[in-house]
Design a binder for these strands. Sequence first.
DNA 1: TGCCAGGCTTCAC
DNA 2: GTGAAGCATGGC
Length: 278
Amino acid sequence: MSLANIAGSGQCFRMTRQDGGAYRVIAFGKRLEIRQTGEREFAFDCSRDEFDRVWSGYFDLRTDYSPLAGRIDPGDRFLAAALRHGDGLRILRQDPWETTVSFIISQRKSLPCIRSAVEALCRRFGDALEDRHGVYRAFPAPGRIAGLRKEDLDACSLGYRSGYVLSAARMAASGGLDFGRMAALDDGDLRRELMRIDGVGPKIADCVMLFAYARTDAFPVDVWIDRVIRTEYGGRFPLERYPGCAGILQQYAFHYARSRDYRICEKPLNPEGYRGAH
DNA sequence: TGCCAGGCTTCAC
DNA sequence: GTGAAGCATGGC
């Protein structure tokens, strides 16, 4: 597990590096400080009970990512490099409501802008909670946002997305959306249900499926992944080769594509028109 | 200062 | 069904 790769991968927006190298993450109404203490050893600053109830699931610690590398097409130099670069990157299992709102906010925003907008939303409207490090803010519940006016949200730099966030909150608060029950839906129905939300299209639905519901076949295509598919795969990614893990690979590809390591490459790692060696 | 960002909705055609 | 315009805002 690499805390740096997880925090920087753009799947979560409330995980930040502290002075000294520890990371703090706020999720499910809890704040955790986590520190790497050895090559394969981490210190979670929480009770055993909280670790079992919240963080073990959040970091998906029961899933072994080591077989992933062996599933890569040997001729796919891009994915091989992406996996090396993102070593230790894991797909989190986040709260569906928070993930939905965060990714509604994400549209046409860069990662730093998303982080600051999400933080502003929490600072203004999240419940104040306290641990031994001080006060922090929970992510605001649907009922809290549903009672706001659009102008109230404008202070969070949401731009034209504030109407979407408000609409989603009112849907969820009125029972028109049940994120708990949605976990029982198959991938197709879950995607359709998410796309009922105003402002949620295919890409955001895929992000929520992948980052909240652990649907690892969901394959979000944003501007970066679109660029990768065009430059490395001749316009079509071989999804059929990677059942059950395409979404995880997408996250490694996204993280790598945004990195300096990849951007300083002068030409694509895969030959023009690569479509998989089979 | 201008460009771009984890896109979506709306409206022509 | 497909394509293009319009959208608010902050970081770089």
